Each structure stands twice: as structure tokens, then as C-alpha cells.
Amino acid sequence: MPLTPLDIHNKEFKRGFRGYDEDEVNEFLDLIIKDYEALIRENKEQQNQMATLQERLDRFANIEETLSKTIIVAQEAADEVKSNSKKEAQLIIREAEKNADRIVNEALVKSGKISLEIEELKKQAAIYRTRFRTLLEAQLELLKSDDWDVIQGSSAQAYSER
């Protein structure tokens, strides 16, 4: 059990024949009591200060732990956002590729239809040319024929008889 200032104050020493001077011992004991009380007060203050510092340290440790957890959660959230963004980008690319394929296929189909229409128009133009040539040739034959001279001669005769 630790010694208290009161224990020092109440301590009684036996008296001997040539013992110490009682007043001098009492003065020294008073000094020891004052110093001992001061040390005890200082010790309590340091213990209180240490308890306060320990509380602050515990609070900071708690804050540090919370921040670490927050950073981990933020990193996981960032990774998840990054992953979702990549997935969304891939989805957009796939959709764009599908649309591009659809557009190309539609263009090919339209191109095929236009090619068929062009071929049909070429055939119709060839048929028209052939018919027109046949008509012109028939007209030329008609102009070259003797019937025309007969028609012309009877017209001339009819004109001169007038």
C-alpha cells in the first residue's frame, strides 16, 4: 500500500537518548509532506492528462478507421462505376454495330432493288429503241416504195389538171 502524506504526518518515532532533534525532524517531515503532496497532485494531473490524451487518441483512431473504411467503400464504388461504364460502353458499341449492320443490309437491299429497276429500264429502253427503229425503217421503206411515186404522180396530175 502506497504511503500517503497523512501517513508521513502521523508517523511517530521513538525517542532515544541522543536521538535526532525533534523540531528538525518535524521540519524535514513537513518538507517531505509538501513535496510528496505536490508529486501526488502532479501524478494525478498527469494521469488525467494521459486519460484525456488517450480519449483523443481513441477518437483519432476511430476517425482513422472510419476514413479507411470510407476510402475502401469509395474505391469499391469507383471500381463498380468503372465496370458499369465499361459494360454500358460495350452495350452501346454492340447496339451501334447492330444498327450499322441493319443500315448496311437495308442499303444493300435498296441497292439490289435499284439495280433491278435499272435493268428493267434498260430492257424497256432497248425494246422502245427496237420498236422505234422498226417504225422508222417501215416509214423509210414506205418512202422508198413505188407506191409513194404513184401517190405523188397522181397528186401531181391532179394538181396540173386544175
Rank of each mutant, 00 (worst) to 15 (best):
M1E: 11
P2Y: 14
P2L: 15
P2C: 08
P2S: 13
L3S: 09
L3N: 07
T4I: 01
L6W: 04
L6M: 01
I8Y: 00
H9N: 07
F13P: 00
R15P: 01
G19Q: 07
Y20A: 14
D21P: 08
E22V: 06
E24Q: 12
E24I: 05
V25A: 01
V25R: 04
L29N: 01
L29C: 03
L31A: 00
I33A: 02
K34M: 02
K34P: 02
K34Q: 01
K34L: 00
Y36M: 02
A38I: 00
A38Y: 05
K44H: 05
E45G: 04
Q46M: 08
Q49E: 12
M50I: 09
A51L: 14
Q54R: 10
R56A: 03
R56Q: 15
D58W: 02
F60G: 00
E65H: 10
E65G: 05
L67F: 12
L67K: 11
L67P: 03
I71E: 07
V73E: 08
Q75N: 14
E76T: 07
A77E: 09
A77Y: 06
D79G: 04
D79R: 11
E80I: 00
K82E: 02
N84T: 03
N84H: 11
S85Y: 13
S85C: 12
S85V: 07
K87D: 08
E88G: 01
Q90P: 00
I92V: 08
I93A: 05
R94D: 07
E95Q: 14
K98S: 06
N99Y: 05
N99E: 10
A100H: 15
R102D: 03
R102E: 03
R102M: 09
I103G: 05
V104E: 01
N105S: 06
N105G: 00
E106Q: 10
E106G: 01
L108F: 04
L108R: 05
S111G: 11
G112Y: 02
I114K: 12
S115W: 02
S115K: 08
S115M: 05
I118E: 03
E119I: 07
L121G: 01
K122H: 03
K123A: 08
A126C: 06
I127K: 07
R129I: 04
T130D: 03
R131L: 03
F132D: 09
T134H: 12
L135M: 10
L135E: 06
E137Q: 15
E137W: 11
L140W: 06
E141A: 11
E141L: 14
L143N: 13
K144S: 14
D146L: 09
D146V: 12
D147W: 09
I151D: 04
Q152E: 14
Q152T: 11
G153A: 13
S154N: 12
S155G: 10
A156V: 10
Y159I: 10
Y159A: 13
S160K: 12
S160V: 14
R162G: 12
R162L: 12
R162H: 11
